[in-house]
């Protein structure tokens, strides 16, 4: 048996959130997500959480589990080495119910950086030719599954909802690094702003919690460097 402490809050009924305790029959290899399903199916059908692929690729089930933001589907209970599993929703977003948060702001911030290739053509008849080296420049930057762990763990996002966030900044570098994209200057100017890279306080929480082991901190650092060089270049010329 494992004890689950689950964050419960229904804004329509509850005045304030509470933690509720459930006893979950723990099988070997059981993940936290399966534990939550056990509660939903056997103990309390009103419990709310998001889930989809259960294979750590869709990014639905990001939550705060025993001291860290993680994907519930990827976290095995026995690996937590604890008799209790404490589950909370992602921070910095309004709670819709229980573990489900409103990610509108998260995605709105992403949409601000124009998350698509800026290139109106003309396009080659076949694919763009891209060297293996150019393609390597996109490695890891493209692996983000937009789960929101980094955004929830970032203290800068907690004090400024207009801060673009690690996810959006990493996406920006992904496009700047892509030779197919023609919006590099515009993108750099946009993220060199107060709510862009310079709102980052270099806390490294995004890197620490990323369930795909990516490094948004490094992406932001590289953007900062580009922004500084760009400004210096403009000053000189």
């Amino acid at each position: 048996m494992t004890t689950f402490n689950v964050f419960r809050y229904d804004p329509a009924i509850d005045k304030c959130p509470k933690m509720e305790t459930f006893d979950v029959k723990n099988e070997r290899g059981m993940t936290v997500l399966e534990g939550l399903f056990y509660i939903l199916e056997n103990l309390d059908p009103t419990l709310c959480f998001r889930s989809s692929c259960r294979a750590a690729i869709c990014g639905s089930c990001a939550m705060h589990i025993n001291g860290q933001y993680r994907l519930a589907c990827r976290t095995q209970i026995e690996h937590l080495k604890s008799d209790t599993v404490t589950v909370r929703p992602i921070a910095h977003s309004e709670i819709i119910k229980d573990l489900v948060v409103d990610m509108t702001n998260f995605f709105a911030n992403l949409e601000k950086i124009k998350p698509y290739i800026i290139n109106e053509g003309p396009f080659p008849e076949r694919e763009f030719l891209q060297s293996e080296g150019e393609r390597k420049g996109l490695d890891h930057l493209i692996d983000c599954i937009l789960c929101g762990c980094c955004y929830g763990a970032c203290p800068s996002a907690g004090t400024d909802e207009d801060y673009l966030g690690p996810h959006a900044l990493m996406k920006t570098l992904r496009f700047i690094n892509d030779p197919r994209d023609k919006g590099g200057k515009e993108r750099l100017a946009f993220v060199s702003s107060e709510n862009g890279v310079f709102r980052c306080h270099t806390v490294f929480n995004c890197q620490e919690v990323c369930p795909k082991d990516l490094d948004p901190s490094s992406a932001i650092a590289r953007l900062k460097m580009k922004a500084v060089w760009n400004t210096l270049k403009n000053l000189v010329s």
């Binding site: 001291g67 933001y69 763990a153 203290p155 907690g158 004090t159 490294f204 929480n205 620490e208």
Partner: peptide
């Protein structure tokens, strides 16, 4: 928010 962030992310 900052208080919660500190408590929820006990990292270096």
């Amino acid at each position: 928010n900052t208080k919660n962030d500190i408590l929820l992310n006990p990292n270096a």
